[in-house]
Amino acid sequence: MFPFSAIVGQDDMKQALMIAAVDRSIGGVLLFGDRGTGKSTAIRALASLLPKMRAVTGCPYSEDPEFSHCDPCVCPKRKSRLVPVPVVDLPLGVTEDRVVGALDIERALVHGEKAFDPGLLARANRGFLYIDEVNLLEDHIVDLLLDVAASGENLVEREGLSVRHPARFVLVGSGNPEEGELRPQLIDRFGLAVEVVTSKDVKGRVEVIRRRDAYERDPAGFAKKWSRADGRLRRRIVKARERLDDLEPGDEILAKSAEICMALGTDGSRGELTLMRAARAFAALADDEAVTLEHLRQVAPMALSHRLRRDPLDESSAGTRVERVIERVL
């Protein structure tokens, strides 16, 4: 795995992923833009940055021993252990039965038992579900994901099985808008969105190639070289999580968030809530004392630009529109 801290530039992309790792309630991250900009690399690298979590031993959904959503929990609850936070890759060509889980066919045929074989949604519980080439995902799989992402649980009623299990995951997607647009319902599931563009700076690109080359030639050695930097980032995430509760945004921040969202005409309160939470996580990551307007300014484009309704006569990009409003309001 290419280390997160070894990724050159692309600060917005890295920042968005870190924010999502600090506060899961923000919702996922959508990365879209040019090919070959390291979108998938960054998301896969995120896995090793995340601090481990405590999970019930043997639980197919990695539930928290303190608070299990399984009803009833059938695992012998006595033991738990630290496990890596799952970052589950939804590969192209995935079939529905593997996403939601299905009858365990081998046990059914060989032993005549009716058993549930959990799918990727079960594995992604409490972690991240990553969809590469999100625009190419089949519509019926998208429907499934939207349903589960909204309710936080996966309800399986098929092949004579009736299973309900927790599936609370953060959706992370990457894609190229040239391949076709995303459904608005799917875009709405992503808390933050970042447009990733190729750097035209020679020095930056040279560094990208050098590190990539070093990694290809000696993956283990390269990972070791960057493990300290990754460790620092990990500690920052842990510390930021602890500090979230202390950072209650003041009235001014809330008022300005509302004003920005109103000026941009984003629907519903989701935009406001995401903006506020992202600003708080950003402040926590920066180890600042309070949430300030500067934090709001920094995260507003990634929290809001994908929520704008299209104005056919406005030719400027969503990002520019957000920045314009921010200049006016703040």
Binding site: G36, G38, T198, V202, R205, V206, I209, R212
Partner: peptide
């Protein structure tokens, strides 16, 4: 190699690799 790629308007880092 990087400078040449940029000069010819080649955007993707993949080409350089």
């Amino acid at each position: 190699l990087v400078g040449t790629a940029l000069g010819f308007g080649i955007d993707s880092v993949r080409a350089e690799l």
